[in-house]
Nucleic acid binder design. Structure first.
Length: 322
DNA sequence: GCATTCC
DNA sequence: GGAATGCAACGCTTT
DNA sequence: AAAGCG
């Protein structure tokens, strides 16, 4: 079964499960053989009135692909019970009272949340965990091993989406020059993330250093477009944030909803779409249907991995510069 | 959203 | 009993 | 040394 079929099935199941909840504010949902207690289903989480029930419907609809991108990655939830970004809080450890069936992983001394099933996602909806963040690294035998290099493009006002598009084209060319496949997605806020599935050889520098080198390379070639300067006041154009590849860093997962003035989704794109796409066009209302039509454009961002050396070589002259 | 702690 | 509080975390940079 | 940043 391919991604489109899986989502079609999941969407039908979501409609059936959520349909049975219509008009109710509390309920017990049975999914994947688990019982999830739901409350405040009518609570609005976005200005246009999308509710916790809408978030639940979305998460269940995209569950097969969303879960594939969360697998083996310790989760950071961004919870906002009233939908307001300013009152949101992070949660990475299981809260007291969490159901015993919710999986956790031992990560660097603590226990962190994992998502494995649709029941897990339903629980996160109940928790008003609007954003699901994961590291570009996977758990393997208790260790967190980087499996993706991410170039995070963030426009600094007055730069905006048009500048991000131009910046993305440059990143695409750079990745083509390195001979690696790369995959763009909307951050769901104002920026864009480019993912490269990689595997590091023993002699390779860490992905964070390679990403920082690529950022400096881009900024040297087009200083009006790219900036790698940390100090916010001195940034111009599009900020290339290599820090997202560092230890313990996370990004909004593919297909994660984002908090804000609309339920935008961090949506994978085709490279050829980047010039036409706009973040506002991809929300919980549009992404499930898009998945059925296009499949999961990020499936190959999970692998097969490509040698990090291909990028390390390009970045080499810039690795230890500033 | 909810368990815990504080007054 | 009702209100307040915590719920991540850390290296790197700038000041 | 402390504060800012993501």
């Amino acid at each position: 079964m391919d991604a489109a079929q899986a989502v079609e099935w999941a969407q039908a199941r979501a409609e059936a499960l959520v349909g049975a909840l219509a008009g109710r504010d509390r309920a017990v949902l049975e999914v994947d053989g688990r019982e999830v207690r739901l409350t405040h289903l009518g609570r609005s989480l976005f200005p246009a009135g999308e509710t916790k029930l809408d978030l639940l419907r979305y998460l269940l609809s995209v569950a097969p692909v969303l879960l594939s991108h969360l697998a083996d990655r310790p989760l950071t939830l961004v919870r906002s019970p009233d939908g307001t970004p300013s009152t949101a809080f992070f949660q990475k450890n299981p809260p007291p009272g969490a159901p015993t069936w919710l999986a956790t992983a031992a990560v660097e001394g603590g226990r962190q949340l994992l998502a494995r099933t649709s029941a897990d996602l339903a629980l996160f909806a109940q928790w008003a965990a609007v954003e699901l963040h994961v590291p570009p690294a996977r758990l393997r035998q208790g260790d967190l091993v980087p499996d993706q290099l991410v170039v995070d493009l963030d426009p600094m006002p007055p730069a905006a989406w048009p500048e991000v598009r131009r910046a993305a084209r440059g990143v695409r060319r750079l990745m083509e020059a390195a001979g690696v496949r790369s995959f763009p997605k909307l951050s769901g806020a104002t920026g864009l993330h480019v993912y490269v599935p990689v595997v590091a050889g023993p002699a390779d520098p860490p992905t964070a250093r390679v990403a920082a080198g690529l950022g400096r390379l881009l900024a040297a070639a087009a200083p009006d477009l790219y900036t790698v300067v940390r100090a916010v006041a001195r940034r111009r154009g599009v900020y290339v944030d290599a820090g997202q590849n560092g230890r313990g860093r996370t990004l909004a997962a593919p297909y994660s909803v984002r908090l804000g003035d609309a339920p935008r989704v961090s949506t994978p794109l085709d490279w050829d779409e980047v010039d036409e796409a706009h973040p506002d066009a991809h929300t919980i209302h549009t992404v499930p249907e898009r998945l059925v039509r296009r499949g999961d454009l990020f499936a190959a961002a999970l692998g097969p991995p490509q040698p990090l050396a291909a990028l390390a070589e390009l970045a080499a002259p810039w690795l230890d510069r500033r």
